[in-house]
Amino acid sequence: MQVVTRKKRPLGKRVAHAIRQDIGAWVLMLPSLIIFTFFVWQPLVNGLILSLYETKGFDPVRFVGLKNFLDVISESSFQSAVANTFKYTLWSLVLGFPLPILTAVMLNEVKRLKGFFRFTVYFPSIVPGVAAAIMWELIYHPTSGLLNSVLALFGANAVPWLQSQNLVIPCIVIMMTWKGFGSTAILYLASLQGVNQELYEAAMIDGAGVFRKFWNITLPSISGMFSLMLVMQIISVFQVMYEPLTMTDGGPNNASISLMLTSYFYGFRFYQAGRAAAVGTITFLFLIGLTVLYFHLQKKNDS
């Protein structure tokens, strides 16, 4: 057997060759690459760099290593922020994860007024975020709010809602779920409509009921979508900021402060961009950790 050894070309030439080969594709990708570089990757890297510096405005003035990280981690409100962020995520999984699935299944079964129901479900998603938060703040108002007014009709005592340290996070998560479940439901609906109808017919012949069909056909068919939505929901809820900022300013007594809200306070209330970037980086690391853990568990499960 003859072994042919080819001399490796230098990297620059190989890259140039690869680009020349697919010049059209590269030029097509160029706008996206530019956008990603300037609006995603560059700020990401800049944030990381900024977190290692003492700052003046947004300018790094002195390299301080991990000092910003140690400072923010040692602050008492940081522990509340981490605990609360996990609470937001857990409550959003409890309240917000099943709802779009159930809604999508129901929408899929609707025979009349399909367009109307789809619009109604999607409508909260087109309400601007801060407007939705203010609207829910009014709904939760301790005296003139809709919820307590309804409770008063039945002679029940007013509930403090956002003013209760125990209720504030579930209350905010309900608002977030109301705002976001519609768009997720539409994605699930699209996935449901791709399920092979012959499977349902076969199951019916075999005598399967509604729940059996749902459990054995519908759920496995859209399980891929579950994984994607789960990761996206965790990533999105972990970065919760404007909802508590608008509705409670992190209160009462830091009961609704989140990691990103802490970062916002550092950056815009106290003008400490380095510390704000450090909290952002910590959040980023948490999210990477959670995502890797999730995919690891899924892989284990699949095998």
Binding site: P160, Q163, S164, Q165, D249, G251, P252, N253, N254, F265, R269, F270
Partner: peptide, 18 residues
């Protein structure tokens, strides 16, 4: 000053809600 105000915000919120 502002950092102290933020900490005091929490104390005030605590006595007025609990």
């Amino acid at each position: 000053c502002q950092e102290l105000y933020k900490i005091l915000d929490s104390c005030v919120q605590a006595v007025l809600t609990d």
